[in-house]
Each structure stands twice: as C-alpha cells, then as structure tokens.
Design a protein around this nucleic acid. Structure first.
Lengths: 335, 335
DNA sequence: CTGTTAGCGCTTTCAT
DNA sequence: ATGAAAGCGCTAACAG
C-alpha cells in the first residue's frame, strides 16, 4: 500500500509536505507541489480515510436508516439523501430495519462502531426511543425522518399525515361515500396515529359517525394474510370506500378485493397515502396523497450537515412537507 | 470518547487485557474478564472501528454498486446482498451509478479511500472496464453482478439473458406472432447484447427473418421520449408483439402504446425481461422472464467473502442464474 | 495469564 | 517554505 511516506521519499520531501499538498494547506512552493502531485499520480496514491479519520475524529460518513428498502417511498428518499450527501463530500452507509426493532438496534451498534458523523433515521416505531437515546448519549447528530418518536426532540423532516389523511377522506366524502374504512399501519408508528387522527377529523367535520369496526390495524409492510378484511367486508353496512394508510397496504387491499371478486372502483373506491413507484405506473389509477420523498432525503441530509457543522446550534428544526392529493381512477362516486 | 485505556485504568489492567476481552483472544482469567466487561458496560464503551481497521488492514466494509436504485430488480438484489453481508459481520456501503460512468468513477474513488474489503459491482457498461482495472490494481476483491465486461475476468453472478430472451420470443412465436419488435437497452451493456442474441436465435430457430427496423436501442432507464417508437409502429408491416429488454422499458412501451390508443394485448402483445416489484402487482399482467434478484445479491456476497478469505483462490467462478418464464395476460394469440 | 513496545497512515504543533 | 516529533485508538509480537 502506498503511503505518504513512500511519496515523500521519492520526492525528497517530508511526509508533512505531502500531507500539505493533499489537503491544500499551508504554504508550498509551486515547484514542490507539482513534483509531489506528479509522483502521487505515478504511484497511484490513494489517501487512507481510516488513518485520516482516526486523527481528525471525523469519518465523513453519514448513515441512513430506513424501514423498507423495497418501498418506493424510501428508495426515492434514499436517492435524495444520497445525492445531497455526495454533493457535500459525505459517504452514505445504508441500513434497512425492515420495521424491526432488533434489526434497528444492530444498525445502531454498527453506526456507533463505524463512528459515523451523523445519522438520518426513519424509526421503526415508538420503541426506537431507546436507540435514539443511545445515539444521543454518544453525541451523534441525528435527524428524524418521516416519523417522530414521542419523548425525543431533535431535527426532523416529516410529512403532514393528518392533513393528507383528512384530504383523502374528504375527497371520498365529496364523492358521496359515508361508510369509509381505514386500513392502517401499526399505531406504534406516529404516522399511523396521525393518519387515524386525520381520518377521524374528516368524519367529524362532515358529521359522519366514527365506527371502529371500519378501522383495522395492519403494518406498513406488504401483507399476505388478508382474512381479517373479511370481517370488515361482511358487515351489515359494509364500506363503499377504503383508505389505506400507505401504498403497500393499498396493494394488499386491492389484491384482496380482486380475490373476492369485488371491483375497484365500481363497488369499492380505494385511496392511499404515498404514491407507487415508477414501476407501477403502467396504469396509474390509484388516488393518492403523494409525498415529496426525494425532498425528505435531501432536506434531511441538509439539516444533518448543518447540525454537524454547528453542533452548538439553535433550537431543533422541524420541517413539515405537505402531501399532494392526486385524484385518479380508483376513487369514484358512490353508486 | 471512551478508549480501551480508560477501561484499562479503571480496571487496573493493561490496555492489552482489555483488547483481549473485547476480541475473545488469548487466555484471560474469568475474574478479570468479568471485571473488564462490567466496566465496559458502565462506561458505555464502543470500539473504534477506524483504529481497528488501521492496524488490522481490514475494514469489514463491502461496497455494493448498482445502476438504478429505483429499479425493483436492484433493490431486491440489494436486500439479498445486505442480508448476506450482515450475517457475515460486514457493513455495506451503497452506491448508485445511475447507468452513468462519471458517477461510477466517483464511487470507485470512494471505495478506494474507504478501503473497503471488497466490491460487488454491477457495471454501467463496457466502459466500466477502466474502473474495474483500477480496483484490480489496488488488489480489491471484486464480484461482477448481472453484467459482464469484455476483457475483464473475475467472479461473477449473471443471469442467462440469451436463454431468457429466446424463451420470451419463442413464447410470442408460439402464439402466432411473426413480426416481433425488440426494444433493447444500450448495446454497451452485456445483457442487452445477449438479449439481442437470444432474440435473433429464436427467430432463426423458427425460420423467421431478422428485420433490423424492428429493433430499437434505448437504455435500461425509464424513458420519456418515445417518439422513436413511431417509426416502428408505422411500418407497412408493423409488429404485433414487442419484447422489451427490461421492466422499465416495458413500462415505457406500454405507456407509449396507451398514449397512441393501441390496446395491449389486443392489438400488440408485450413481454419483458425482469419482473416488476411488489408495488406493481396490483394487476399482474406482464408476461416476463423473471430473475432471482435476491439470489444475485446473496450469492454475490458469498462469492466475494470467499474470495476475501482465500485471496490466493482457485479460478474465477461464474454463477449463471436461469430466468423463469412467467406467462401472464400481456401476451396473447395474434389476432 | 498479563504487560510492554512498536507501529498502522495520517495530521497537529512547534521548530527551523 | 519545510521538517521533526507526538499521538489518534487499537492490536501483533514478544516478554515475563
């Protein structure tokens, strides 16, 4: 492995001079600078970031923890984060918790030993509090993404789940629907609670009763067992519309309805939070509250880097990104 | 920051003893081992992987470079890689080249300075040769994924593009199609060449003429400008079926056909390589040659780690994962 | 079973 | 404008 000492020897200078050339610090005569540069080229020198990190006490690595790498919301977010990080000279260490606190903890340990300079964290749920406190204890700058965790204050980039949910449900109400089901994520997750709140608010604002038999709690991941949907569909007064709390839940719902021979939107309208990815736009038909996923990542990195550079810092900032209602053909007038 | 010296002092032992406890090496009395462990807990000690890497000359970091993080083929592959890497105690540094050689080079430089122990590399194209040679020059173990690069030998995990293409085209032929178009990726990419070869072979085996007006070269990324499809559709003897060389091309094709009011599969059948992701299975209708994406990642990591652990190694291994023909409703008998 | 020494590749500080 | 020495946190090699 070529080190600055190898370069130094060949150039008849000290290692320090080489270091200065690499980092463009201090005063160096143009002549030696050129010579050193040439020799670095010749010898294929590549700086060793480990050694550098050890002395500088910074790694230039940020970590991004998401909960589902197969979900287009998170992959788009990841792109935003990646682009922003690279632009600022940071590497990005990915982690995928799979909505699972055990895996999440493993990643937190990984971040600690890797001495990442900061963490972009989409928590698996309220149980992530412990992990966040661990990071905080080790003084690692932290930005929460998409979900908040009660009892933990920090910089955050969030969507407006309540508002988006309210808009989706009011859209359905405006189409004449009165029996609207909510297929929700786990209430352990802040967005699920806020989407429920938005759902309730829309009902109340429109003088519709809240019927808890119309509300089911799943998880945000693709689900296989849809048997519990039957209870809901077999009510005396079954729903004419379903609000799925995220894209994967919507897919599960639509599949389940298809399997039961229930046409969408003819018999039941379906709307959901989060758009589907590029790959599903063959037939863009889902009415959604789309979130600016790329921005989540990009702004998150920006907040994080600002926090790293000014650790003292002002108060925590909370960025709320509004969702956009996109009406397509999966929702229509109640028949 | 807590170091082994802080622990050592508090435990009245030497730093070496602490190191031995951490790494479970050498002989240590159960008593001191316990004492040291307890103190590490108390002080929230976390080993510094930078320091460790510097002396051990290994980082326990692998790098995964893919060409499109929004494509479900690659995200599924990434999951396979991630799971396998974590199981073996490695971290995974992600990179997304976007099918772009400039970005790819930046990632290669990043891998070099980060001193990753090995690289899982899905090359952007034949032009990646230079980057691969750079990695090789620095003795970094390397596994090629999904695509090969002429002139570069190494371990690889590939699909069987030619065979899959042949099967898809023969499927169309068996449905009575005689005018079959190929919308291909860039010929700079090995899989595009192999898919073309499979396409030609199927035609030849069935005594159908090869007509280069039926073949168009796009790129594997989602495309916006579909005007060049018009030439193809406005031929005197237009295609009755289209073979898209990957999932995103198929989506582009179907969108373009929809925009022109051409019904699929009634007027034109469409088939493609690679399945769409979970998020598009709302209406699973594309006939595809599906590849075991998860396996690509998992086996790639396995080969890579074996290579790292036994650098001398045997000859390079080439794993070929066969695609599976899944017939759905986007292809039907020629009308 | 435990400790001492040296050094991984780099940069900071202080000289010159 | 350049260099020497020391040290970041850790472990291999050798001592005892």
């Amino acid at each position: 492995m070529v080190t600055i000492y190898d370069i130094a020897k060949k150039a008849n200078v000290s290692a320090m001079t080489v270091s200065r050339v690499i980092n463009n610090t201090g005063r160096i005569s143009e002549k030696t600078r050129m010579k050193v540069k040439r020799i670095m080229e010749e010898m294929n020198y590549v700086p060793n970031s480990m050694a550098r990190s050890l002395v500088l006490q910074e790694t230039k690595i940020l970590s991004l923890l998401i909960t589902d790498i197969t979900n287009p919301f998170y992959t788009t977010l990841a792109r935003g984060a990646e682009d922003a990080a690279k632009r600022c000279g940071y590497k990005l260490l990915f982690g995928n918790s799979d909505e699972n606190l055990i895996k999440e903890k493993e990643y937190v340990d990984m971040m600690l030993t890797a001495r990442v300079d900061g963490v972009l964290f989409a928590p698996a749920g309220d149980g992530s509090l412990e992990h966040l406190n661990t990071l905080r204890k080790h003084n690692i700058p932290l930005v929460l993404l998409d979900r908040e965790v009660p009892g933990f204050e920090t910089d955050m980039v969030l969507g407006d789940s309540k508002d988006g949910a309210r808009k989706l449900v009011e859209h359905l109400i405006s189409l004449g629907h009165k029996r609207i089901a909510l297929i929700n994520g786990a209430l352990q997750v802040s967005t699920a609670r806020h989407r429920l709140a938005g759902y309730k608010e829309a009902l109340k604002l429109n003088d519709l009763p809240y019927d808890d038999r119309l509300v089911a709690e799943f998880g945000y991941k693709p689900f296989a067992d849809d048997s519990s949907l039957d209870e809901l569909l077999q009510l005396d007064d079954p729903p004419t519309a379903i609000f799925a709390a995220n894209n994967f839940l919507a897919i599960g719902v639509i599949r389940a309805l298809r399997a039961r021979g229930i046409p969408v939107p003819e018999q039941i309208s379906v709307v959901c939070f989060d758009d589907l990815g590029e790959s599903s736009v063959i037939d863009p038909f889902l009415t959604v509250a789309a979130q600016p996923a790329y921005q989540f990542g990009a702004l998150g990195i920006q907040l994080l880097i600002e926090r790293i550079q000014d650790k003292s810092g002002e108060d925590y900032r909370k960025i709320i990104l509004p969702p956009e209602l996109i009406v397509r053909s999966s929702s229509r007038e109640r028949s």
